[in-house]
Design a protein around this nucleic acid. Structure first.
Lengths: 345, 345
DNA sequence: CGATCTCGTGGAATCGTTTCCATGGAATCG
DNA sequence: CGATTCCATGGAAACGATTCCACGAGATCG
């Protein structure tokens, strides 16, 4: 690594480092002549300022930390992309960290972000206790939570109102004649897991559907637990006729096992997934989803973070969710003789 | 941001900053007593060293840059994940940049990485002219190319041998009775686009299949161009009976439009895609793919980069590719006389 | 025409850390 | 017991940039 310093630029331009610095940072107290000579020297040497030295001196690093549970989850990949683009156009580079859905990796990354003195952090938190998030708060590092919140941590956040979408989905399934809806829940150690489960419970009660606790399987937002959930639910003596999966990865696991079991989605069983992934529309049959805008979430998170950095205390934002009906849940249930729980449409 | 400095640690421990620094960096020239007091003080204050100051002094930042064309492309999301994990266990943090398949964004990020004095860079390059990549080379910044290469740039790289997989795919399709295979190519401004196209051309010639130039559509590795490709190929007076898409996103575009056209994949038309994405196995029918290992690619790229950082000059690595046959190409073609093979049954 | 003001510039301090050098006390040797 | 070695430690320089302060030369004013 052969670095060009401002000293060399100044020498080539025949000025002092102070003057060179002034020109390069756009300080108006410079003569046209020196401006020109310094600019020429910088271009000639292809000078790139040392961001570390700048940050050390100015206590601003122009970088943000973004910590997600898993980049390979398309929802978080989209979120990362949206946030990164928004940050870039505000002049910040993004340090992306991956917690791998593990508390210890999240904590390790949080310490790294503190060490690198990022100007702010956006976290989709893993787990429920905050962990080293509290260290960020103590140091007053501007922080915004995204997608998930942590009880007891008073930080601005951008989350989704799962309630509306889930109620729409349950009502929709009820209209198709389903009375027993299986729910593959997210972990209760995440706020989204709890919120969506609560919303499902309420919606099912409102719609007058079966509240059989066996119809709920608790997964962990990973594909494998979606498969396990389908197994558990389908092994019931009185299995559900429709399934609602609380995130995209568990839906993927569910689809995969349903294929293996030879059950036709949309015909033998209805399926709705939380999270709208581009690919879900390509499946055959296309998957009904509860959609929420990742782009908005990423963009708004950056927006709130910039406000916090500027010393403001923005309100948290809750984004809407909405059911999109596709073929996987569009066929009304047919009356069958085996189980008569449901009235025929 | 309220930072704790080594000065405060030293004061609390009752030693000089020099001594505190020695203890914290594991320098053995310290007494057991001071080691203990400094460690206690650091823990007490929850001291996190300022990485910028360390980097400024030591000219090592313990960070790597990773520049991909698009994080939302699952192939690159997986690559980013693999590389990031490998870097992390070698003690490096990864700065992830997104070029959005655009030369100017790539160049902008490369300059940022130079400014931040990362210890090394891994790039899946966009475009063909190198651009600011040459600035990295001039400054002797350790750099490794991944997935794609750039002509005229002599840098270590990790790429895939597309030839084998593509030949297997073409032979496989030939065995199913296809004689006209449509090829949705990547852009000829990328090395992978050129390599795969050349491999396809050779394989088709070897297998004695139609070399009609109209059977090739040049896309840009984005979903939309996969759709456009299907349109173009199917509008031919003598359309292909099988399709080979040069990457996963174009395959997605192709699938989407084939659904709209009402063509059944695997029955009316065979489809094989380059890139093995987890989801492709879940489609109905499951998609045949040419697989190559992203995990290996990411891991090896980091490995080579660490070697370059250590002053070595590692050889480039070429990884194998391999056909995985699934339902989308498993049905032998039925002899038909018309150009509308798919419309029957 | 002398005093004041303006303005561009150089020099120096500073950010937080590492590392080199000097110091002084303890330990060891002849 | 005096000389040498050893070793933990403090102090200071350095990394590369920004910014404050002071200075001197012109311009402006009374």
């Amino acid at each position: 690594m052969e670095a060009v310093t401002i000293k060399e630029v100044a020498a080539l331009a025949g000025v002092s480092v102070g003057t060179a610095s002034r020109v390069l940072s756009g300080n108006p107290a410079t003569s046209a002549d020196t401006r020109e000579r310094v600019a020429a020297a910088a271009a000639e040497l292809d000078y790139q300022p040392n961001a570390q030295a700048q940050a050390l001196r100015s206590t601003r690093s122009n970088s943000l930390g973004l910590l997600v549970p898993d980049v390979r989850n398309p929802f978080f990949a989209d979120l990362a992309h949206a946030a990164e683009q928004a940050a870039l156009s505000a002049g910040y580079v993004t340090l992306l960290g991956n917690a791998n859905e593990r508390n210890d990796q999240q904590d390790r990354y949080l310490d790294t972000l503190i060490s690198r003195r990022v100007d702010g952090v956006i976290v989709a938190p893993v787990g429920d206790d905050g962990g080293r998030l509290r260290a960020l708060i103590e140091r007053k590092v501007p922080t915004v939570l995204v997608d998930r919140t942590v009880p007891g941590l008073d930080l601005p956040s951008v989350t989704t109102d799962s309630e509306t979408g889930i109620r729409q989905a349950v009502q929709h399934l009820a209209e198709q004649g389903h009375t027993r809806i299986g729910y593959i829940s997210g972990p209760q150690a995440t706020s989204t897991g709890r919120d969506r489960f609560a919303a499902f419970t309420r919606a099912v009660a409102e719609a007058g559907l079966s509240q059989d606790p066996d119809l709920v399987y608790f997964g962990d937002y990973q594909a494998a637990s979606g498969s396990a959930g389908v197994h558990a639910l389908m092994d019931l003596t009185n299995p559900p006729t429709a399934l609602l999966a609380a995130d995209s990865l568990m839906a993927v696991g569910a689809i995969s096992i349903l294929h293996k079991l030879g059950m036709r989605i949309g015909t033998d069983i209805a399926l709705v997934a939380f999270d709208d992934i581009e690919w879900f529309a390509l499946l055959n049959p296309a998957l009904s989803v509860i959609a929420h805008s990742v782009e908005d979430m990423g963009r708004i998170a950056i927006d709130l973070l910039l406000q916090v950095i500027n010393g403001q205390s923005p309100e948290s934002v809750v984004l809407p969710s909405e059911l999109i009906v596709r073929a996987s849940s569009a066929t009304p249930i047919r009356p069958t003789s085996t189980t008569e729980q449901w009235s025929q449409q």
